[in-house]
Amino acid sequence: MADPEKLFRVNVVTPDGLIYSHRSSIIDMRAVDGQRAIMYNHTPILTPLSIGDVKVKRSREMSNKVDHIAVNGGYIEFSNNTATVIADSAERARNIDVSRAEAAKKRAEQHMKEAREKHDTRSFERAEIALKRATNRISVYNSRK
């Protein structure tokens, strides 16, 4: 008899509460020091995340079922076969309002242009982060199936 599939729990939490909770065979995300993937029985880890797409593969049998979640930084902690992503904000691909994200992208680009003209480094950096967040949301939305 074949071994049952080994799955672990993935939870994504923001200040607004739990936004995602499912069992997974693998989770893939961008940490500040590079791409990371976690599977069942991974060594405990706590690492900061970059703005990016957290991909949760639900099971091996459902090989094409991957949930995409846009996160704006935060941390991932894995222990006892539970992965917990803690982020200031996170959105499942299916919940992203792409027109709102595109408007945020245009605003950020405009703020970057204005900050560059005024030589305002701090405002430029804030607008650059807003642009990365908006671009990430658009990219995650487009990656959904």
Rank of each mutant, 00 (worst) to 15 (best):
N142F: 02
A127W: 00
V10R: 14
A37H: 06
A127K: 02
R122W: 11
V10D: 15
V32N: 07
Y40W: 09
Y75L: 02
K106M: 10
T135F: 03
P44N: 11
N11V: 12
D88V: 09
K132V: 00
R133E: 03
M29W: 00
I45G: 06
H119T: 12
E102Y: 01
I19P: 01
A93Q: 13
T135A: 10
K55R: 15
V32T: 05
V56K: 07
E128A: 15
T84Q: 02
S99G: 10
V140Y: 04
T43H: 04
T82A: 11
P4W: 01
S50W: 00
I45Q: 09
A103Y: 09
V140G: 00
T135D: 06
I129D: 08
M62Q: 11
I138T: 05
I69V: 06
V32Y: 03
H68I: 10
V71I: 08
F124R: 08
A108V: 09
H42G: 04
M62I: 08
S63N: 14
V13N: 04
H42T: 01
I76N: 02
A37G: 13
E61N: 15
P15M: 14
R137H: 05
K65N: 12
F124Q: 11
S63R: 14
S24T: 13
R137V: 04
R107P: 09
H68T: 15
A130W: 01
G34S: 08
S50R: 04
D88I: 10
V54C: 01
T43G: 01
K6A: 11
G74R: 11
A37K: 04
S24E: 14
M29L: 05
A115H: 01
D28L: 09
N81A: 11
M39N: 04
Y141E: 09
N41H: 04
Y20A: 06
I129Y: 02
M1Q: 11
R92D: 06
D97S: 03
S89R: 15
I69T: 02
E109H: 01
D16V: 03
G52Q: 03
Q35F: 00
T121Y: 07
N80E: 15
D3H: 12
E128L: 07
K113F: 05
R23F: 10
N64D: 15
N142T: 10
I38E: 04
R144Q: 14
F8M: 09
A90R: 07
D16S: 01
A130I: 11
R9P: 01
D3Q: 14
A2W: 11
F78G: 12
V56G: 06
Y75I: 05
I19D: 04
L18S: 11
